[in-house]
Amino acid sequence: MAELTYRDAVARGIAQEMARDPDVVFLGEDVAKAGGVFKATVGLYDQFGPLRVRDTPISEQAILGAAMGAAMTGLKPIAEIMFSDFFAVCFDYIANEFPKSRYMSNGQTKCPLVVRTGNGAGSRFGAQHSQSVENWCMMIPGLKVVAPSTPTDVIGLMAAAVRDPDPVIFFEHKSLYPMKGEVPDGEIVDALGTARTVRTGTDATILALALMVPRALEAAERLKVEHGVDCEVVDVRSLVPLDTQTILGSVGRTHRLFTVEENPRLCGWGAEIVSIVADEAFYDLDGPPVRITTPHIPLPAADILEDMVLPTVERIVERVQRSLGA
């Protein structure tokens, strides 16, 4: 075991896969010599050299298109899009090219690649560098979508994503980069499509993703200590494939469902899960499912304003408590 930051876990996860498979290559803006603007890829250029770790121009379409062409013909590229907000300038590849070529070609082509990106708020960067856009990707048939919340999950899910034969969008949360965690030694390989119950409880299920996971955990502790409410917290981790069995199983035990989502309210990932639960576990529920989300507004830059819109520990506690009448 060693203590590692989420940031360093990114480089370790990529290094683990590049050392294992010479077909894994890595490209993006400032990722090589500079080690990434978030310093999440420091050391990879020195370890694997300029043929495998490549700086690109500011050309997001070229980055993702090149990743796809390489993937179609035998490599396993990892492409970085620096901020997930920039998906909007290269969305053709995410929405039209990666996920459709296999289907349209009747199974002839493949697209085994990973797009990793800095997602989420907390850096006071304003509305074009702070969004949580995992729901943009969740809605596209043919993609897989993961968002780890711990350093160990970063490494394990990165390995799973690189080894997966489908295109995987890998959301790293910018505000988690400095977070530390105990990480096992040796190779770490996780599985896509698996949620994790990170706290067991009997009174309510709280689903969370990425930065919202530590907040949900802290809220659960306070609900227990201050209000005697025992919450189960599930780290959803993988939006596609979605581990509905873990989610439905938890709701079946606690009979109450809360989602904690950083994405803006409309069509957030929690809406889909609530609809699945309503459809398949309605009679397990003792009360209406509750979505705790960022309001449907662009994100403000000022700290005092940004802090008001993201779901906070206090808001989660208040909302669960009010809903349960505790």
Binding site: S59, Q61, A62, I63, L64, G65, A66, A67, M68, G69, A70, A71, M72, T73, G74, L75, P77, D92, Y93, N96, E97, S101, M104, S105, Q108, T109
Partner: peptide, 27 residues
Amino acid sequence: TSEPHGVMGSYAIIGAHLPIACGAAWR
């Protein structure tokens, strides 16, 4: 699309396949 013939796809979003061809060439 016919991979056995080296036809790696016909792309209907204008310009999309130029970067993709770059990627194949990179490989």
